[in-house]
């Protein structure tokens, strides 16, 4: 018995095989995102599909000799020459992916995305209005244009960068390699000349970019960004916080390993690789953090707070209204 997913796929597979005579088994499986074994199972179903009446000549035919050689030849299926329309789910998934790409590239890519989306929507008819939106933080189009140019021409640029973790503006010299959209933010993967290593920069934090015209040597591929990288940092320390209601919002913005409600508040466990980052979070949340485990993880924040209070005092700035 054929499953719903299988039948849905067959409505695209049958026209695909007719548009691609003698298609390769492995390549076809890749197009449909399935294993070769599943593709063979699909083809076996086709043996029993065809014109009403069920006579041998009415059914589709898959050439078994070609199959042995890894190629698919399908015949007797001319009446299914075009694929079924998109389902709303397919159309929306594709359109959201396209729009995300369009926000990232140079203006020419944005135009290609806009016209491709318009054609898809026209083909689909008007029954599925734009129910899914995308808004991304990709910085200024001009900065992205200069970065794209440097990537294409393989040249060195100087950045003015407002660092995230350490909240500091720096002016690194980098060799741009790739623009990547992750979680709604655009990032630049680049080789840092000063650090002599790959670095990731958030594009909306790049305040300025200045081309130097100097050619960049070939550094190979930047390391692939892995969403699970936080779990693999060798020197990351596990820290547990108990959060009051006022500080719970932070769990939506930082990667949390475990959460557990307790009578005092929400207990969350996270991995901290940069002590400066944890210090800033503890300072920001203040009394919203009820407990820090291990306690010494909070020491740096306490010292910063004392240092700041001492500065106010030395300047003669009162802290009471």
């Amino acid at each position: 018995m054929a499953s719903k997913e299988q039948v849905s796929r067959l409505f695209a597979l049958v026209p695909y095989l007719q548009a691609h005579p003698a298609a390769e088994l492995a390549a076809t499986a890749a197009v449909f995102g399935i294993a070769v074994r599943q593709l063979v199972a699909d083809l076996n179903v086709l043996w029993f599909c065809g014109l009403p009446g069920g006579l041998p000549g009415d059914l589709m035919e898959v050439d078994m000799d070609s199959m042995e050689a890894g190629r698919i030849r399908l015949s007797n299926a001319e009446y299914l020459a075009r694929p079924l329309r998109f389902t709303p789910d397919e159309a929306l998934s594709l359109v959201v992916a396209l729009r995300t790409l369009g926000d990232l590239g140079d203006p020419a890519l944005g135009d290609a995305v806009a016209s491709a989306v318009a054609k898809l929507e026209r083909a689909q008819g008007t029954q599925h209005p734009a129910t899914i939106g995308v808004a991304t933080a990709t910085g200024s189009a001009e900065i992205r244009r200069v970065l794209n140019e440097a990537i294409t021409n393989k040249t060195v640029v100087d950045l003015t960068y407002d660092g995230l973790a350490r909240a500091e503006t720096t002016t690194p010299t980098v060799e741009p390699s790739r623009l990547a959209m992750r979680d709604g933010y655009a990032y630049l993967d680049a080789w840092s000349v000063d650090r002599n290593d790959w670095r990731v920069y958030r594009v909306d934090r790049i305040a300025d970019v200045r081309p130097t015209g100097r050619p960049a040597p070939d550094r190979g591929e930047p390391p692939r960004f892995d969403p699970g990288w936080l779990d693999q940092l060798p020197d990351a320390a596990e820290v547990t916080l108990v959060l009051a209601e006022s500080a719970r919002w932070i769990t939506e913005y930082i990667p949390i390993r475990h959460t557990q409600p307790t009578p005092q508040g929400l207990q969350v466990t996270l991995l901290v690789s940069d002590p400066a980052w944890l210090r800033a979070q503890l300072l920001r949340l203040g009394s919203g953090v009820l407990r820090v485990e291990p306690p010494q993880a909070a020491r740096s924040a306490q010292e910063s707070a004392r240092e700041a209070l001492a500065l106010y005092q030395s300047l003669g700035l009162a802290l009471q209204e």
Binding site: A12, F32, F86, S93, L94, L98
Partner: peptide, 21 residues
């Protein structure tokens, strides 16, 4: 583009239909 498997499959299915066309 999609990291979420369900929508990645849907986008792939849509593109497979375009290839079939």
């Amino acid at each position: 583009v999609w990291e979420s498997a369900t929508q990645a499959d849907q986008a792939l299915a849509a593109v497979a239909k375009l290839r079939a066309a």
